[in-house]
Computed example of a mutant assay.
Amino acid sequence: MPTHVVFIHGLWIHSAAWKPWQDLFEEKGYATSAPGWPGDRETVEETRANPDGLDNQGIAEICHHYADIIAGLDEKPIVVGHSFGGLIAQELLANDLVAAAVAIDPAPIKGVKVLPFAQLRSGFPVLGNPANKSRTVALTEKQFKYAFGNVLTDEESDALHAAWTIPGPGRPLFEDATANFVRNSPAAVNTHTAVRGPLLLTSGTEDHTVPESVTLAVVKLYADNTASVTDYHRYEGKGHSLTLDDGWKDVADDVLAWLAAQEL
C-alpha cells in the first residue's frame, strides 16, 4: 500500500492549488489528498461566493478537522503544510497522529518572539480591524503581491491571485498574534519532549508573510528535542508563493528528496 501524503493549505489559498504537487507525488508512488479547511467549498469559485462557512474557524477547529480526516486513513500519513498549514502539520506531528511532517514557511507557533515589520504588514489586512476575528477577509491583488508575490512579476502574482485565492478566516491570525499571552493557546506545540516522526521546516529568504527569522526562531524551539529529527532547509530568493509559483517544483523535489532520506 503506498504511503499517503496529506497536503494542508494555508490562509487565503484554496486546497486545489496543491494539484501539481499531488500529481508529482503520485508519479513518485505516493497516494495523496488535499482536503480543505472546515468551511472550504469544493472549488475556488464556490468558496469565494459562499465563504461564510469559514467564519470563526480557529486553529483548534482546523486541527481537529484534519485529525478526524487522518483517523479515517489506514496508516499514519505524511503531512505537508504551507503557512498556517505548516503550523497545523506541526500540531499533528507533536500529537503522534502522522508519521512525518513538512512545514513550508510555517506560521509561527507559540514561543516565537520575533515580529519583523514585513510579517506585521502582511497580516494587517486582517489584524488591522478587530471585527475581522469572527469573519473572513479576502486579499486584494496589491495585498497579495506584498504578502505572497513580492519576488514575482506583477503579471505572475496577479495570475496566482486570480487562480487560487479565497477569503480566509481572521480568527487564526488573531490567535497566532496573541499566542505568547494566552496560557492555553491553540498555537502551542510541544517542541521539547514529544517523541515523534521527522520534521522538516523550511523558509524562503524573501518571505514577507513568514520571514526567515521567524522560522529560524521555530527551529531553535526544537533544539533541545534530541529524541526526534528536526531539519531546516533554506530557499534562496523565494517568497511566500514558493508552493504556487513557477518555481514550485524546485521546492517539491527538495521535499521528495528529504522524504527519501528519511526512508519514507
Rank of each mutant, 00 (worst) to 15 (best):
T3I: 05
I8E: 07
I13N: 05
H14D: 02
P20S: 00
P20H: 00
Q22F: 01
D23T: 14
D23N: 15
L24R: 06
E26A: 13
K28I: 11
K28P: 15
Y30M: 09
A31V: 11
A34I: 01
P35L: 00
G36V: 01
G36S: 03
G39F: 02
L54I: 02
A60Y: 01
I62W: 03
C63G: 13
H64V: 10
Y66L: 05
D68C: 11
G72F: 00
I78L: 05
V79M: 01
V79G: 13
V80W: 01
V80E: 03
G81D: 07
H82P: 10
F84Y: 09
G85I: 05
G85Y: 04
Q90N: 08
E91V: 15
L97E: 11
L97S: 12
A99E: 06
A99P: 15
A100G: 07
A101N: 15
D105F: 03
P106L: 02
P108R: 05
K113G: 04
P116C: 00
P116K: 00
F117I: 09
A118L: 15
L120R: 10
R121L: 05
G123A: 12
P125D: 02
N129R: 09
N132E: 15
K133F: 05
V137N: 06
L139S: 10
E141N: 09
Q143L: 06
F144S: 07
Y146P: 13
V151A: 06
L152E: 08
T153F: 12
D154W: 14
E155F: 10
E155C: 08
S157Q: 10
D158H: 13
H161I: 05
A163W: 08
T165P: 12
P167F: 04
P169D: 05
G170I: 05
F181C: 00
A187G: 15
T193W: 04
R196A: 09
L201K: 15
D207S: 08
S213N: 12
V214M: 12
L216Y: 02
L216S: 04
K220F: 01
A223E: 08
A223G: 15
A223I: 11
N225F: 08
V229H: 15
V229T: 07
H233A: 09
H240T: 14
L242T: 13
T243L: 13
W248N: 04
D250M: 08
V251P: 11
L256T: 05
W258H: 03
L259G: 12
A260Q: 13
A261W: 06
A261L: 07
A261R: 13
Q262Y: 03
E263M: 04
